[in-house]
Simulated assay, not measured.
Amino acid sequence: MTVSTIAIRPLWLRVLQFPPTRIVLLGGIIFYMMAVNNGFMEDFKATPVVAIAITIGMGGLAMAIYAGWGRFIERREVTELSLPGMGREWATGALIGAGLFASCAMILMMLGMYRIEGLNPLSFLIPAVAMALSSGIFEELFFRGVVFRSVEDLFGSWISLVVSSLVFGFIHLLNPGGTIEGAIYISIEAGLLLAAAYLLTRRLWMSIGFHMAWNYTQSAIFSGVVSGGVTLPGLIRDVIEGPELLTGGSFGLESSVIALVLCTTAGVILLMIAVRRGHILPPPWKR
């Protein structure tokens, strides 16, 4: 049945179903939409509610395009975006993301490197919402939904874990404050953790929740620099002083040993659970 079905599929469809084509076309569409949305966020940064509304609309459209590609081009059920269990998985990822960043900040406080000088009005919590939504939706659709799945189809989960993590980390060199050290740290700590969240559930909601919550907590609450890019004043007025090895310097806390240890440990734990659940896909020659 399967062989016959594949044999009668037209050539154009088989080309579109080829994983590298998925990366170029579907990935290109999502990446372009992310860039356009980032432009809108910059244009409407003085009116953050408008930026949030645009990001929700653009993010919903990106999800619809992703789901449509899976349904009509790949001819499969797009389980990674199915709604049952979405809230639970998103909330779990969000708790992990917010908890890990808060733990990093508390360690810096205990070391005397993070000092709170006061609080800003609650309205300072609003501007970072659009940024968190954008990074959580677009980046997870692209890096885990497109890149990870495509490389996994070709070479299996382990190689895909390495490749997608490196691509995810080094794409941050495009940020104004991007550094090689920051890119390497993100590849290890965040690339592993986010891919492990996907492997654990074989769905995107947990990684989306983590990504949103980490970035939002870092920017909106702790007023931190997000991956060498976003620098918005948040709720807490703080002063961070200490060696870049521990504070992350101008790149942000992702480039610190503290985040590297905590996030990598969490990622390894999730990955071990995913392995026990049998969610690791071997390469095609071993299937």
Rank of each mutant, 00 (worst) to 15 (best):
I126E: 02
D43N: 08
R144M: 08
E140V: 09
W12P: 08
L81A: 10
P84Y: 09
V146K: 01
L260V: 09
A266M: 08
L271I: 11
G60E: 06
R277A: 04
L194P: 05
T5R: 13
S123H: 06
I116Y: 09
V225L: 10
S256N: 00
G278K: 01
R75T: 12
M63F: 08
A266K: 04
I186S: 03
I8L: 12
A67T: 14
E244W: 13
E140D: 11
N215P: 00
G178V: 06
N175C: 08
L61T: 10
F138I: 07
A64E: 13
L133D: 03
R22V: 14
T2N: 15
V146W: 02
R88S: 12
I208R: 02
F18E: 13
L100Y: 04
E241K: 15
I30Q: 05
L166Y: 00
R76E: 15
V36I: 14
A195T: 01
V24N: 09
V147S: 01
Y185G: 01
E77C: 09
N215S: 12
R287F: 07
P282T: 10
H279K: 05
C104T: 13
A35W: 10
L83T: 15
L61F: 14
I8K: 15
A197E: 02
I29Q: 03
K45R: 10
S103K: 04
P233F: 11
L194E: 03
L16T: 12
L281D: 07
V230A: 13
I137R: 07
S219A: 15
L246A: 10
M206C: 05
E189S: 06
W69R: 07
V268H: 07
V15E: 10
E254R: 07
L81M: 09
T79V: 15
K45P: 01
L111M: 15
G99H: 06
G278A: 05
M109E: 06
S123T: 10
R22M: 15
P284I: 08
L26V: 14
G57V: 07
G145W: 04
L16V: 11
L281Q: 09
V226M: 12
L193D: 01
A220R: 05
G87E: 04
G228H: 01
G136L: 03
L281N: 10
V36N: 09
A128F: 06
G182K: 00
G278D: 03
M34Q: 11
P19L: 14
L26Q: 04
W69Q: 09
G252D: 00
V50C: 08
E42V: 13
L199C: 00
D43E: 11
R22H: 13
S135Y: 04
I52K: 05
V275P: 04
G97C: 11
W158C: 11
A213T: 03
E181F: 01
I23A: 07
L154S: 05
S150F: 02
P127A: 11
S123A: 11
S165K: 01
I186T: 04
K45V: 11
